[in-house]
Amino acid sequence: MYRLLTSISAGELFKRQLPVFLVAFLIAELSYKFHSFALECVAFLATWFVLDGALHLLIGLRSQERFQR
Rank of each mutant, 00 (worst) to 15 (best):
A46H: 09
T6H: 11
A38H: 10
L55D: 12
L30F: 02
F34M: 11
V42H: 03
L57N: 06
F21P: 01
Q68W: 12
A46W: 11
V42M: 01
Y32W: 11
F44A: 04
E29Y: 07
I27S: 00
L45H: 05
A10F: 02
I8M: 09
I8C: 03
I59V: 12
A38F: 12
P19L: 02
W48I: 08
S9F: 00
F44I: 10
A46F: 11
K33S: 14
F21D: 00
R3A: 15
F44T: 09
S31H: 10
A43C: 10
V42L: 05
I27N: 00
C41V: 14
L39K: 07
Y2W: 15
F67R: 05
G60T: 08
L30K: 15
D52P: 05
E12G: 11
K33R: 15
T47P: 01
Q17P: 00
F67Y: 03
E12S: 10
L18P: 01
R3K: 14
F67S: 08
R16T: 13
L4Y: 11
Q17M: 10
S31F: 11
F37C: 06
Q68F: 14
S36P: 13
A43M: 13
V50K: 05
L55W: 14
L57R: 12
R16N: 08
L58I: 13
E40D: 15
Y32N: 07
F34Q: 07
Q68D: 10
H56R: 05
Q64A: 10
I8D: 04
L22D: 02
S63V: 09
R16M: 07
H56P: 02
S36L: 13
Y2L: 12
A24L: 02
P19M: 01
W48D: 05
Q17W: 14
T6G: 03
I27P: 01
S63F: 07
L61C: 09
F67T: 12
Y2A: 08
A28K: 08
P19T: 05
L4Q: 06
Q64D: 02
L61A: 12
L61N: 09
L39C: 04
L4R: 04
E40P: 06
E65V: 15
G60W: 13
L30Q: 10
C41P: 04
T6L: 14
F49I: 06
K33C: 09
F21M: 00
R3E: 15
L30I: 11
T47A: 00
